[in-house]
Write a protein that binds this DNA or RNA. Structure first.
Lengths: 226, 226
DNA sequence: AAAAAAATTAAACTCAAATTAAATTTACTA
DNA sequence: TAGTAAATTTAATTTGAGTTTAATTTTTTT
C-alpha cells in the first residue's frame, strides 16, 4: 500500500517507516500539517496515518481540511492522548479510525488492512457506474451500451456521471448548473438542454428503452427499472 | 440511523437500545448470529453493531459471512476481549471498526457517526407520502397504488401532494387555487375540477376504494381509513 | 322537476423543452 | 505560435406535452 505517515517525533516516525516497509508498504514521511495537506492533494494514498500533535496545524485540522476539500482517503488517527473526548473529536473531524500510543504493531497493521479494504471496495465499485444496461467507465471515460462503446466529451461525461450518481430522483436544471457547470448564476442559458440532447443522441437514440426522462417543469430523471 | 444491534447479554443489549434510541436512532435487537445474518440480508441498516461472543455463530463468522455475500453495511465490532489479537481477527473478518467493553457511550456515538458518514452518501433518504395503499414518491415524482407505478404531470403531482399533505379535512377550491396555482383571483376557472378528474382517472378509477371524495358545495376531501 | 354544482370531454392555446445551426472558445498539432 | 479541429456555448426555430378554456353531460340538492 501507499501510505502517508504524518508524524513529527523522529523516533516514532522511523519506527513506523521501518516496520511498515518491512511489510512491503510504500511510505512517505511528513512532519507537519501544511505539507501533509499538500502531499495528500497531490498523491493518491491508500491510507493516511496522522498524528494529532504535529507542528503548523494539528492533526484534527488536517483531517477537517481534507474532508472539506472532498478528499476521501481513509485517515487513521494516531496519538498519545487516549481520552474518550479526544477520540470523539478525532472521529468527528473526519478520521476513519483511531489508535492510541503505545500500540502493538500488529494492531496497526490490522487496522490498516481494514481501512484500505474499505477504500479498495469503493474504488473498484466506483470505477464503473451502471444503470440497467448502460455502463459508465470512469477509467476509460467512455460509456457502453448494448456491446457498443460510446465516446463522450468531458462535459457530456460529467453530466452523465452526475445523472447516474443521482439516479432515481428528479434533478433540476439549477442543480445541474451548480454541480456540473459549477455556476448557479446564469439562469438564462440552455446549455443543459443542448447537452442532454447530445447525450441522448449517443446513449438513447438507438435503443428502445430510454435512460433519460424529461419531467416537464421540473428537470430530468434517470431511473433504473426494478 | 437504522441500526442492528447483535448482542446476547440482556443488560448490555437494553443499555445500548435505550441509549441509542435516546439519540433518535432506530434499533433492531438480535441475540444470535444466524438471525443477525438473516436480518442484515433483509434490511438495509446504516451500521451493524456486532458482539463477538454470541450464540449460534460468533461475531467473527457473522462478519465474514456477510462480507462473503457482498454485504457492505459498516460493522462495528463490540467485545469484552481487549487483546490485540482479537482486534486483529475482528478487523480482518471484515469489521470496519472495533470497540472494547467497557466503553464510554459518547465514543460509541462518535464511531457510529464516522462509520455512517461513509455510507450515508449512497443511501438517498426515502421521501414518500402515503395514504392507505397510495404512495406518493417525492424523489421519483410518481405515485404508486396496488403495485402499479403511475406517472403524473407537474400540476397533477402538486395537486395530489397538496391533497395528501392536507388529508382528513375538507379543502376548498379557493384554497387549492391559492396554494397549488398560487392565484386566488380567477374564480371563474374550472381547472381544479378538470385536474381532480385527471387525477381520479389515474389513481381512483381502477380501484374499488376511492381516495378523493367530493364534498358538494364545499370542496374535496382525502381521508385515511383509521 | 328545476336549479345548482360537479364531472366529463374535446378542442385551443401556451410555454417548456427539443432541435438545429452558427458563433465562440479551447485544445491540439505542425 | 499560427492554424485547425474539436468542444462548448449562444441563439433562433420548431415541436409537443401539459395546461387551460369552454361547452356538454351527469349528479346532487332543494
Amino acid at each position: 500500500m501507499k501510505l502517508l505517515v504524518v508524524e513529527d517525533e523522529p523516533k516514532v516516525a522511523s519506527f513506523l517507516k521501518q516496520g511498515l516497509e518491512e511489510q512491503d508498504h510504500e511510505i512517505t514521511l511528513c512532519n507537519d500539517g501544511k505539507n501533509a495537506i499538500k502531499l495528500a492533494q497531490e498523491n493518491q494514498y491508500d491510507v493516511i496515518i496522522l498524528d494529532i500533535m504535529i507542528p503548523q496545524m494539528d492533526g484534527l485540522e488536517v483531517a477537517k481540511e481534507l474532508r472539506r476539500e472532498g478528499n476521501k482517503t481513509p485517515i487513521l488517527m494516531l496519538t498519545a492522548l487516549g481520552s474518550t473526548d479526544e477520540k470523539v473529536l478525532g472521529l468527528d473531524a473526519g478520521a476513519d479510525d483511531y489508535l492510541v500510543k503505545p500500540f502493538e504493531f500488529k494492531e496497526l497493521l490490522a487496522r490498516l488492512r481494514a481501512l484500505s479494504k474499505r477504500n479498495l471496495n469503493n474504488l473498484l465499485e466506483q470505477k464503473i457506474l451502471t444503470l440497467n444496461d448502460l455502463e459508465l467507465d470512469l477509467n476509460l471515460r467512455v460509456a457502453r451500451r448494448g456491446g457498443q462503446t460510446i465516446d463522450l466529451t468531458t462535459k457530456e461525461f460529467s453530466l452523465l456521471e452526475y445523472l447516474i450518481r443521482n439516479k432515481n430522483r428528479v434533478i433540476t436544471r439549477t442543480e445541474i448548473l451548480e454541480k456540473v457547470w459549477d455556476s448557479g448564476f446564469d439562469s438564462t442559458t440552455n446549455v443543459i438542454d443542448v447537452y442532454i440532447n447530445f447525450i441522448r443522441k449517443k446513449i438513447d437514440k438507438d435503443f428502445p428503452t430510454k435512460i433519460i426522462h424529461t419531467m416537464v417543469g421540473m428537470g430530468y430523471i434517470v431511473k433504473s427499472d426494478t
